[in-house]
Structures are given as structure tokens and as C-alpha cells.
Computed example of a mutant assay.
Amino acid sequence: MNWLLVVVGGMIGAPLRHLTDQTLRKRYGTDFPWGILTVNVVGCLILGVLTGAVTAGAASSHTQLFLGTGLCGALTTYSTFSYETLRLAEGGMRFYAVANALGSVVAGLGAAFVGVAVAEALWL
């Protein structure tokens, strides 16, 4: 049963990542990886809320498997973030590469902290 929760979450997260990335590429171009940055930050926010909910006893281990491991595991992508940062650096867009790396870390951590704070406000 647990593996099915992870699979179903992944079946939702992977297409969401692809659609988000494609939508933002069409809208803003391909110079900067807005889609990957967006899904990674949103995934951090979801994981922050989920962590706070689990800590408060408001979410079950099944919810954690479905949302955390399945959905967020497929939604977020460290490998594509790394590839896009390398692509920017090798393409001579070093400012964008640094902005992508620093922005992803700062925004991701910030989103996780905000998510935990939201969960604490709701359930503690």
C-alpha cells in the first residue's frame, strides 16, 4: 500500500513539473530556468507545511508518503537545477548561473521555513 501512495504522488508531481516548466518557458523564454526554480521552491513550501503538519500530528505517514515522497519527489529536481545552472555558466551567462544557484537555495530554504511557520500557525 505504501508504494502505491508514492507512485500515485509521483504520477501527479512529474507531469506538474513538466507542464510548469513548459508554460514558463513559453511565457518568459529559455534564458533563465524559471520553471525549474518555481517547482523547486513550491516543493520546498509543500515539504515545509507537511513537516509542520506531521510534527503537530495533523498529517499521517500516508500523507507524508503521498505528498512528500511521491508528489514532491517527482515535482522537484536537483539534477535539472544542476544541469540548468551548468548550462547557463557554460553559455556565458554567469550572472544568471549564480543567480539561479543562490536564488534556488535562498528561496527554497525560505519557502521551507515559511511552510513550517504556516503549519505551526494552523496546527500548534
Rank of each mutant, 00 (worst) to 15 (best):
A117V: 12
V98C: 06
V7Y: 14
A112W: 01
Q64F: 14
D21I: 07
E84V: 12
C72A: 02
K26T: 07
L45I: 11
E90A: 13
S61Y: 13
Y78P: 05
N40T: 05
L71W: 02
V41F: 00
T63Y: 10
P33R: 08
A89G: 05
S79N: 03
V49R: 02
G48K: 08
L67D: 05
T51A: 15
Y83V: 13
N2P: 13
A119L: 04
E84F: 03
V41Q: 00
I46R: 02
G108C: 10
M11P: 11
G103F: 00
G110F: 04
V49W: 07
D21S: 13
I12K: 08
T85S: 09
V105W: 12
Q22V: 13
S60C: 05
N40D: 00
H18R: 13
M93Y: 13
F95I: 05
L67R: 04
G13M: 06
S82D: 12
G52E: 02
W3L: 15
G115E: 09
G115M: 01
T85P: 00
L67H: 04
L86A: 05
T69N: 06
M93K: 13
L16F: 15
L109G: 03
D31I: 02
R17D: 06
A111G: 09
M11N: 14
G108M: 01
V54R: 10
V8G: 01
T76G: 02
